[in-house]
């Protein structure tokens, strides 16, 4: 749900789930595509989003606003424009790395059908290793493997031509009072 803040900038009624989910989606992208913040800033520039996310510090503070993060130096507020910019960046990066995401999901499905543990699939195992490493560096607790795998499958859907819309609707859904 959207509201207008004191400054006039639209804000999200309950931004906590949005902050957390956006940060996790970007973290999963970092893990699957071995990205860093430079790639995100480059994408922001390509999408003409530098007014919202123009430098590494801004990006760090926005991502640090996730309630799951260890540090407390992040922003407490998240504007709609900022959430939208992160949404566009995430879906654009997912689209760029669609082939690898799809291939990894295919391996995940194949191993699941055989009843084998997902991490035994080489591509999935590499992804999980990087995901856990990044997660433990930044978050309070070790995540369940199911979360990492779910984010991987989510990335597949966000990499579609309508992926930004799917991610955005998902975020709105998470911020609505009924959710």
């Amino acid at each position: 749900m959207l509201a207008v803040g004191v400054t006039g900038a639209p804000t999200l009624a309950d931004p906590q789930p949005i902050k957390a989910h956006l940060d996790l989606v970007l973290l999963a992208l970092e893990a699957i595509a071995e990205l860093n913040s430079e790639a995100m800033l480059h994408t922001a520039a390509r999408l003409h989003l530098t007014d919202t996310i123009g430098d590494r510090l801004t990006l760090w503070r926005l991502r640090q606003s996730s309630p799951l993060r260890k540090g407390k130096g992040g922003r407490k507020r998240l504007d709609v424009d900022e959430a939208r910019a992160l949404t566009l960046i995430a879906s654009e990066l997912a689209s760029q790395h669609h082939s690898k995401i799809r291939q990894t999901v295919a391996h995940l499905e194949a191993y699941s059908q055989k009843g084998r543990a997902p991490h035994q699939a080489p591509m999935v195992g590499d992804y999980l290793d990087r995901f856990f490493q990044l997660y433990e560096e930044r978050m309070e607790e070790r995540p369940p493997e199911a979360l990492a795998l779910k984010l991987l499958v989510d990335l597949l859907f966000y990499s579609a031509p309508t992926g930004d819309r799917r991610l955005w609707l998902n975020l709105l859904e998470r911020s609505s009072p009924s959710s």
Partner: peptide
């Protein structure tokens, strides 16, 4: 995205 994030609840 010349107007990257102007509208409030419009999707990308």
């Amino acid at each position: 995205p010349e107007k990257p994030a102007n509208s409030v609840d419009r999707a990308p």
